Computed example of a mutant assay.
Amino acid sequence: MFSSKKDSNGIKMAKLATLVAHNVHISGDLEFSEGLRMDGQVTGNVSGRPGEETLLVVSDQGAIRGNVSAYNVVINGCVTGDVTVTHFVELQSNARVLGNIYYQQLRMDIGATIEGKLTRIDSQSAHVPTLPAPPEYTIDLTTN
Protein backbone atom coordinates (compact mmCIF):
# COMPACT_ATOMS: atom_id res chain seq x y z
CA MET A 1 0.00 0.00 0.00
CA PHE A 2 2.81 2.44 0.79
CA SER A 3 5.94 2.94 -1.26
CA SER A 4 9.02 5.03 -0.69
CA LYS A 5 8.70 6.70 -4.09
CA LYS A 6 6.30 9.50 -4.81
CA ASP A 7 3.51 7.95 -6.87
CA SER A 8 1.14 10.37 -8.51
CA ASN A 9 -1.47 7.60 -8.69
CA GLY A 10 -1.26 6.61 -5.04
CA ILE A 11 -0.20 7.58 -1.58
CA LYS A 12 3.23 9.00 -0.86
CA MET A 13 4.82 7.30 2.11
CA ALA A 14 4.32 9.35 5.24
CA LYS A 15 5.45 8.96 8.81
CA LEU A 16 2.56 7.84 11.00
CA ALA A 17 3.70 9.94 13.94
CA THR A 18 0.49 9.64 15.99
CA LEU A 19 -1.66 6.72 17.07
CA VAL A 20 -5.10 6.92 18.66
CA ALA A 21 -5.39 3.46 20.23
CA HIS A 22 -8.50 1.31 20.04
CA ASN A 23 -9.51 2.00 23.66
CA VAL A 24 -9.29 5.81 23.30
CA HIS A 25 -12.30 8.09 22.68
CA ILE A 26 -11.65 11.75 21.94
CA SER A 27 -14.43 14.36 22.06
CA GLY A 28 -13.47 17.51 20.18
CA ASP A 29 -11.73 18.56 16.99
CA LEU A 30 -8.34 17.05 16.20
CA GLU A 31 -5.65 18.55 13.95
CA PHE A 32 -2.55 16.55 13.09
CA SER A 33 0.63 16.86 11.05
CA GLU A 34 2.54 14.14 9.17
CA GLY A 35 0.48 10.99 9.76
CA LEU A 36 -2.24 9.75 12.11
CA ARG A 37 -3.45 6.17 12.57
CA MET A 38 -6.93 6.03 14.07
CA ASP A 39 -7.76 2.79 15.88
CA GLY A 40 -9.97 4.54 18.44
CA GLN A 41 -12.92 6.93 18.17
CA VAL A 42 -13.21 10.66 17.65
CA THR A 43 -16.39 12.67 18.03
CA GLY A 44 -15.39 15.87 16.26
CA ASN A 45 -13.67 17.00 13.09
CA VAL A 46 -10.31 15.45 12.15
CA SER A 47 -8.06 17.45 9.85
CA GLY A 48 -4.51 17.37 8.63
CA ARG A 49 -2.56 20.59 8.99
CA PRO A 50 -3.33 22.75 5.91
CA GLY A 51 -0.53 22.94 3.36
CA GLU A 52 1.12 19.72 4.54
CA GLU A 53 1.07 16.31 2.84
CA THR A 54 -0.68 14.58 5.74
CA LEU A 55 -1.90 10.99 5.90
CA LEU A 56 -4.89 9.75 7.91
CA VAL A 57 -5.42 6.00 8.29
CA VAL A 58 -8.71 4.88 9.86
CA SER A 59 -8.34 1.19 10.72
CA ASP A 60 -11.17 -1.34 10.79
CA GLN A 61 -11.50 -0.59 14.54
CA GLY A 62 -11.48 3.20 14.07
CA ALA A 63 -14.48 5.52 13.89
CA ILE A 64 -14.89 9.25 13.33
CA ARG A 65 -18.15 11.15 13.90
CA GLY A 66 -17.32 14.45 12.23
CA ASN A 67 -15.85 15.86 9.05
CA VAL A 68 -12.46 14.69 7.82
CA SER A 69 -9.92 16.58 5.72
CA ALA A 70 -6.36 15.61 4.82
CA TYR A 71 -3.98 15.29 1.89
CA ASN A 72 -4.19 11.46 1.77
CA VAL A 73 -6.77 9.27 3.53
CA VAL A 74 -7.08 5.49 3.90
CA ILE A 75 -10.37 4.31 5.43
CA ASN A 76 -11.11 0.78 6.60
CA GLY A 77 -13.40 1.79 9.49
CA CYS A 78 -16.41 4.09 9.83
CA VAL A 79 -16.63 7.82 9.12
CA THR A 80 -19.90 9.66 9.74
CA GLY A 81 -19.38 13.04 8.09
CA ASP A 82 -17.97 14.56 4.93
CA VAL A 83 -14.48 13.56 3.77
CA THR A 84 -12.36 16.07 1.82
CA VAL A 85 -9.11 14.73 0.38
CA THR A 86 -6.82 16.98 -1.63
CA HIS A 87 -4.80 14.14 -3.17
CA PHE A 88 -5.75 10.46 -2.78
CA VAL A 89 -8.39 8.51 -0.88
CA GLU A 90 -8.43 4.74 -0.54
CA LEU A 91 -11.57 3.00 0.70
CA GLN A 92 -10.68 -0.50 1.83
CA SER A 93 -13.10 -3.42 2.04
CA ASN A 94 -14.46 -2.62 5.55
CA ALA A 95 -14.83 1.12 4.92
CA ARG A 96 -18.20 2.69 5.69
CA VAL A 97 -18.67 6.38 4.95
CA LEU A 98 -21.94 8.10 5.86
CA GLY A 99 -21.35 11.41 4.12
CA ASN A 100 -20.04 12.99 0.95
CA ILE A 101 -16.52 12.39 -0.32
CA TYR A 102 -14.61 15.14 -2.16
CA TYR A 103 -11.46 13.74 -3.73
CA GLN A 104 -8.83 14.20 -6.43
CA GLN A 105 -8.04 10.49 -6.85
CA LEU A 106 -10.05 7.53 -5.53
CA ARG A 107 -9.50 3.80 -5.06
CA MET A 108 -12.36 1.71 -3.69
CA ASP A 109 -12.21 -1.98 -2.77
CA ILE A 110 -15.10 -4.42 -3.04
CA GLY A 111 -17.14 -4.30 0.18
CA ALA A 112 -16.61 -0.59 0.93
CA THR A 113 -19.87 1.35 1.30
CA ILE A 114 -20.70 5.02 0.87
CA GLU A 115 -23.98 6.69 1.74
CA GLY A 116 -23.40 10.05 0.12
CA LYS A 117 -22.06 11.64 -3.05
CA LEU A 118 -18.66 11.23 -4.64
CA THR A 119 -17.38 14.52 -6.07
CA ARG A 120 -14.06 14.88 -7.86
CA ILE A 121 -12.33 18.16 -7.04
CA ASP A 122 -10.12 20.22 -9.34
CA SER A 123 -6.52 19.12 -8.91
CA GLN A 124 -5.07 22.58 -9.47
CA SER A 125 -7.18 24.50 -6.99
CA ALA A 126 -7.85 21.50 -4.69
CA HIS A 127 -10.98 23.03 -3.27
CA VAL A 128 -14.48 21.74 -2.86
CA PRO A 129 -16.57 23.05 -5.73
CA THR A 130 -19.43 25.40 -5.01
CA LEU A 131 -22.63 23.80 -6.17
CA PRO A 132 -25.27 25.99 -7.75
CA ALA A 133 -28.42 26.63 -5.75
CA PRO A 134 -31.36 24.50 -6.81
CA PRO A 135 -33.91 26.26 -9.01
CA GLU A 136 -36.78 27.93 -7.23
CA TYR A 137 -40.32 26.94 -8.08
CA THR A 138 -43.54 28.66 -7.16
CA ILE A 139 -46.63 26.52 -6.78
CA ASP A 140 -50.05 28.16 -6.68
CA LEU A 141 -52.46 25.99 -4.74
CA THR A 142 -55.45 28.32 -4.94
CA THR A 143 -58.51 27.17 -6.83
CA ASN A 144 -60.83 29.32 -8.84
Results as ranks from 00 to 15, higher is better:
G10R: 00
I11G: 06
K15S: 12
T18N: 11
L19H: 10
L19P: 06
V20W: 04
H22W: 00
V24A: 14
V24T: 13
G28C: 05
D29T: 05
E31Y: 10
S33L: 07
S33V: 00
M38I: 02
D39T: 10
D39E: 15
T43W: 01
G44D: 03
G44E: 01
G48P: 11
R49I: 00
E53H: 03
V57Q: 02
S59Q: 04
G62F: 04
R65Y: 14
R65M: 14
G66H: 08
N67V: 00
N67M: 02
V68I: 12
A70P: 05
V74H: 04
I75V: 12
I75S: 00
V83W: 06
T84D: 09
T84R: 07
V85C: 11
V85W: 08
F88K: 06
E90N: 05
L91S: 07
N94L: 14
G99H: 02
Y103D: 09
Q105L: 13
Q105V: 07
L106D: 07
R107A: 15
E115N: 15
K117Q: 14
L118D: 06
R120S: 01
Q124Y: 02
H127R: 14
V128L: 12
V128W: 02
P129R: 02
T130L: 14
L131W: 09
L131K: 13
